[in-house]
Design a binder for these strands. Structure first.
Lengths: 147, 147
DNA sequence: CGCATAACATTATGCGCATAACTAAGTTTA
DNA sequence: TAAACTTAGTTATGCGCATAATGTTATGCG
């Protein structure tokens, strides 16, 4: 592949990352959320309470990040920790009522953001989009690569 | 659009961002570069010397980010600053010889990364990929939105 | 059983990027 | 020409995410 084409792809991914995140940030700000936190809430809303190690796996970020994210969401009252009797190392994370309410608001924002994002794309492009993106993600996933 | 579909798209973009950046970081580390810096070097290699405000525009990031990025790249000897006689506010940024050499190395890495990224995708998907991504980027670009 | 190893979590630190607030220099206009 | 505005850049600060190092608990095996 020549450099022009490679750069077009890499650059496009980089810029989409920046802009999509910035837009998410702008949409989430009124809810008092920073980007990244919404993923945690949505994951808990989807799958239910889980320990931080599972959260880390589900969100695709590292354990220290989960520690900090959950700490902030706990401070704002949206999640709560619960000890696991059978394993003193672990700590279950679950949504509070406030967190559940917030998650439903986030879902609406999420739909709006996705619609905004794909505006002007051909329907079949949109249909195959998740697959395409996930393939690329798997291709560069250094997590599974290493393990 | 229903939430399932919206989440699939937003989540896929978020994960691709994380992984593509992480992979870039791993590839750039041997060159002593952190992700983001390569874009600056490539931009200077492509367009030639320019002032920081232009760099900020070209890279799609904010002026304070450019201040810090250029400071670090200057410290590692890859770029250099030059005053503009006609405008005492401005400061031109240009590649040093070391920076030029590094840029050509980055170009090779960039091609490898792009090839790795698109592995397994249909050729026509790849062909339309930059356009698709750029459309999405423009759709969520809060910069132009505001102005 | 006891010990090595693995798993859960945290603290410390550093980078990229953002916004807000500011200085200094150039430009427009009344 | 003095005042108002714009533009280039910096400093200060904060968040998300990463890696490295550490403490603690669970577990598998000789």
């Amino acid at each position: 592949m020549d450099f022009e084409q490679a750069d077009a792809i890499n650059q496009a991914i980089r810029l989409l990352s920046l802009r999509h995140r910035a837009r998410a940030s702008a949409l989430l700000a009124p809810l008092g959320l920073h980007p990244g936190q919404e993923a945690l809430l949505l994951e808990l809303a989807r799958t239910g309470p889980m320990i931080k190690a599972q959260l880390s796996e589900a969100l695709g970020c590292e354990p220290p990040s989960v520690t900090l994210m959950t700490r902030k969401l706990e401070a704002s009252g949206h999640i709560r920790f619960r000890a696991v009797p059978s394993d003193k190392r672990a700590s279950v994370v679950e949504l509070t009522d406030s967190g559940k309410a917030l998650a439903t608001q986030v879902k609406q924002l999420w739909c709006a953001l996705a619609e905004e994002t794909i505006a002007g794309l051909a329907p079949d492009t949109v249909a195959s989009l998740p697959d395409t993106l996930n393939t690329m993600t798997a291709n560069v996933d250094s997590r599974r690569r290493a393990k």
